[in-house]
Design a protein around this nucleic acid. Structure first.
Length: 446
RNA sequence: GGAGGGUUGGCAGAGUGGUAAUGCAGCGGCUUGCUAAGCCGUGACGGUUAAUUCCGUCCACAGGUUCGAAUCCUGUACCCUCCGCCA
């Protein structure tokens, strides 16, 4: 959420950002108009309250007729006040309904563009060649630099079925479309990736979390997943939920993790606080019917290790850079070709985004780069909504938040199966995982 | 599922109808001959002002009663204790 006074002072910039991000049904001028009205009524109300308070405090000091007069005077003010307060309240409700839908402003490093085709490719890495020379500006849609096909590559679902790693037939019977059973070595690979990443994160001073996965509305509002992304979220609502209140299944542990700091005042010296949480995530995926229907790329339930950071002003860029460095480190460990993308205004996810990178891994099975993780700076946009503050010499300040997909396991497994497949149908396991998998190869079943 | 207690500033903790004590921490200042010190100031948010000016709001949240509510009434949320049931 933006500070309304910031919007007032930077209205032209905010209006531009709304346009660049393609956010609909947001009227910045209208909001500022209502705010002006609100301030006018607020002044009247405060003046009336002042008179009432003055009279009231003198009532107890006098007696008799004088007292009667003061009380009747105060009663008159009281009636006038309640009318004005009603007007004030209505204006406040309008502001509260509109203000959260104003998106965060953007970094001057964020490219301005309509959709993903305007994203910038920052760097490309290949296990055999290392970083590619990218002196020519690379277009998002141009994937000519992707690794060469040495034989006829299969996609992960074909590999998964053949090697008995993925079963989407039975999950269809059990739970419907877009679920899966992971089996055998696929599960062990997930555990191994988890192990090497957690080791690295602990070395870097992260705090491990196991957070709640069912949360109240406030948490999802706080990270700006609500109200915009409400349809993406499963609502748990029946007589078994306490006191009839709905709970929501998180689509990422980000809301749970940041909500740990909700309504807290942190000490300046304890920042930055970096946490990670490996959790199951649930997404309804409405509106993406027909897209990525094959396999486990886009499913209703998947496991993810999320990295989050609460920090102070001026620390956020350093954290953002560390997060993407960790993402790159992991994919290099897994020996998977990837590229790093600077997301443009039209494709930068939710309203909180100030600056955002994606890491995309190569999928030889479908000949595409696939989003594997997102690193986002949100300034104090989420911290305002969650009321996360820290104290420094100047007083209380809103904290900054940075979030990043440490690893989305399903997609990492897709990348490993597809990139490390051999012509004989086996899969080579990246060296970094050997200690944890206990095997170096997945062999075709007899 | 049943019964009871509770929620006050960053933290601790008074206050039961007249407008939020006190201690600690943090921050600012003074003192530095009295010894890991002492003294003074300082809650948050909003509006307003030349201003460290003035005003308003805030005692979990939302209503109500009252000239006036942390205090009385109603509802809700959350925490704790005990009983029951169960993993």
């Amino acid at each position: 959420m933006l500070d309304i006074n910031y919007i007032k002072e930077n209205s032209e910039f905010v209006k531009k950002v709304v346009k660049y991000k393609g956010v609909k049904d947001v009227d910045v001028e209208g909001l500022l108009g209502i705010y002006e009205q609100y301030l006018n009524v607020l002044k009247e109300v405060e003046n009336l309250r002042n008179s009432r308070n003055e009279i009231s405090s003198s009532v107890s000091r006098v007696g008799g007729k004088q007292r009667e007069e003061l009380i009747s005077k105060a009663t008159k003010i009281k009636n006038e006040l309640s009318e004005k307060e009603e007007v004030l309240n209505d204006l406040k409700i309008k502001i509260d309904a509109t203000l959260p839908s104003i998106p965060n402003v953007i970094s001057d490093e964020m490219p301005i563009g309509k959709d993903e085709s305007d994203n910038l490719v920052l760097k490309v890495w290949d296990p055999e060649k290392g970083y590619l020379k990218t002196d020519i500006p690379l277009k998002y849609d141009d994937i000519s630099y992707a690794p060469e096909q040495k034989f006829d590559y299969k996609d992960h679902i074909e590999i998964g079925e053949k090697l008995d790693l993925i079963d989407v037939e039975q999950s269809g019977k059990v739970s419907g479309s877009r679920f899966c059973y992971l089996k055998n070595e696929a599960v062990i690979i997930q555990d191994a990736i988890s192990a090497i990443l957690k080791k690295e994160l602990l070395r870097r001073g992260f705090i491990p979390f196991i957070p709640p996965l069912l949360v109240k509305e406030r948490s999802l509002f706080g990270t700006s997943h609500f109200p915009e992304g409400r349809s993406q979220v499963y609502e748990i609502k029946n007589e078994n939920v306490e006191e009839g209140n709905s709970l929501f299944l998180v689509g990422s542990s980000e809301p749970s993790n940041f909500s740990y700091f909700m309504d807290k005042v942190l000490k300046e010296e304890e920042l930055p606080i970096k946490v990670y949480a490996q959790t199951t995530c649930f997404r309804s995926e409405v509106g993406s019917w027909g897209k990525d229907v094959r396999g486990i790329k886009r499913v209703h339930q998947f496991d993810k290790l999320e990295m989050n950071c609460v920090c102070k002003e001026n620390q956020e860029r350093e954290v953002f850079d560390e997060f993407i460095e960790i993402n790159e480190w992991l994919f290099q460990q897994l020996e998977i070709p990837y590229r790093v993308i600077n997301k443009c205004t039209g494709d930068c996810g939710y309203n909180a985004s100030y600056f955002q990178y994606d890491i995309e891994s190569w999928r030889p099975g479908d000949k595409e780069y696939m989003e594997a993780g997102t690193d986002t700076m949100t300034t104090d946009y989420q911290a305002r909504r969650l009321n996360i503050k820290y104290r420094n010499k100047e007083g209380l300040k809103f904290a900054r938040t940075v979030n990043d997909t440490g690893v989305a396991f399903g997609r990492a497994i897709i990348a490993i199966l597809e990139n490390h497949q051999q012509e004989d149908g086996s899969i080579n396991i990246p060296k970094a995982l050997h200690l944890y998998t206990g095997f170096k190869k997945i062999l075709p079943k007899a």
